[in-house]
Amino acid sequence: MSSLYQNIPTSAEQDARLTLLTEWLGSLDLVEVGSRRPASSDASFRRYFRLDVAPALRAKLGDTLIAMDAPPERENVPAFIHVQGLLQEAGVTVPAIVARDVERGFLLLSDLGTTTYLQRLDPDNAAFMYSDAVDALIKFQLHSQPGVLPEFDRAFVLREMNLFPEWFLGRHLGVTMNEAQQAQLDKVFETITNNVLAQQQVFMHRDFHSRNLMFLDQGNPGVLDFQDAVYGPVTYDLASLLRDAYIQWDEEIVLDWVVRYWQSAKQVGLPVNPDIDAFYRDFEFMALQRHLKILGIFCRLNYRDGKPIYMGDLPTVMDYVRKTANRYTELKPLLRLLDAFDAFGDGAAPQVGYTF
């Protein structure tokens, strides 16, 4: 088997795990095992199933629960449990852990419903929904302390961005950069990295966006997919939320939301840059780092993992990248590289509302 696919579970492995999961669920006497149906899928090797709760327990546990199958050789279940506790302590709505078998990678979780932010958001409700999301983010950030989560350090930042030349440029576009082009990209990466690492550090969800936020009537939003949390730049999760790969808003609206977050964060004592222009620049550089990573990840999911669904979101992410690169003099070499490689476009400069 090609090394590209060596970490992907086979159908036989998945079937064997499903048998083990079914046996474990049956031993709990909490759910009706025969009611199992797929609940959702994501970009990882985790699988989720929704099950009906035993009738006698529904008043206590709700009508349904979610079973998570996370192969321990591929997924970090202890990290999921650890971060779930941190978020819960901070007052953020997350799935409760009803039962666990950490050794085999099984969790039984409370069900936060079926409506994601992405499904619910529209121009009429976006302001209050993002306000709720920002409130939850600030709660999490206020509980930050060093030494609790892995650090988002220089090696981490560069490892993420290097997915862009490997999988987007190399695998997707078939580009082999010459020495001069590689040097240009390295310089841009260094500029981004220096900005990111100079920012103040807080707890960081790392995937705080519309597909991982559940719309709830009470305790909105419910937060999912938090197991990869780290200690990193204060703008990261805000950039994930407002420069979302799956939904795009007008720049003047995003700028207003950024300012509102900045004002709230300052009021409660979070370590944001006291100058709004500098903070917005930090936000943009952070978003660019994330978007370069995403371009690589979406291509890797397609070519390595056989998950092409994310390829349709590449144009949105590239639009973010081009607009940001066009706004800052030190990032213009990235735009020239994209033009040279004809990455989603004819090389024409994108329309941008703000230039710094």
Results as ranks from 00 to 15, higher is better:
L28Y: 04
T10D: 10
D275E: 00
V53G: 10
E89G: 15
P221H: 11
M161K: 01
E151I: 04
E151T: 14
D207S: 02
G91H: 02
F283L: 05
F208K: 07
D339F: 05
R46D: 07
Q84F: 03
S40K: 08
P78C: 03
L163I: 07
S240Y: 08
P233W: 07
F189C: 06
V202H: 05
S3Q: 13
L270P: 07
V94D: 13
V317P: 14
Y231C: 15
A348N: 11
Y261R: 05
E75C: 05
Y246L: 00
P315C: 12
M177Y: 01
A287E: 00
I309Q: 14
K307N: 11
R243H: 12
L18S: 08
A90L: 08
P38Y: 09
D305G: 11
S35D: 07
V188R: 09
L224Q: 09
D228H: 06
N162T: 07
R159F: 15
L169Q: 02
A12N: 05
T176R: 11
A287D: 01
D15R: 07
D313C: 04
T22I: 05
Y117L: 00
F106L: 15
V202T: 06
P55M: 02
Q182N: 10
F80L: 09
L86Y: 03
T176M: 10
N212R: 03
A183N: 11
Y48L: 14
M311D: 01
T22F: 09
M318A: 05
I192D: 07
I253C: 11
L331C: 00
F140L: 11
D305H: 13
D346L: 05
L20S: 15
L149N: 02
P55G: 04
S264N: 12
L87V: 08
V157R: 00
K307S: 15
R120V: 03
M214Q: 07
V33A: 13
D69C: 06
P38H: 04
A43S: 05
E330C: 09
E179W: 04
L21R: 14
S27P: 04
T355K: 12
R336A: 14
L213K: 00
A126K: 15
L28R: 07
S44T: 06
D122G: 01
F156I: 06
L61T: 08
D153R: 01
A39N: 04
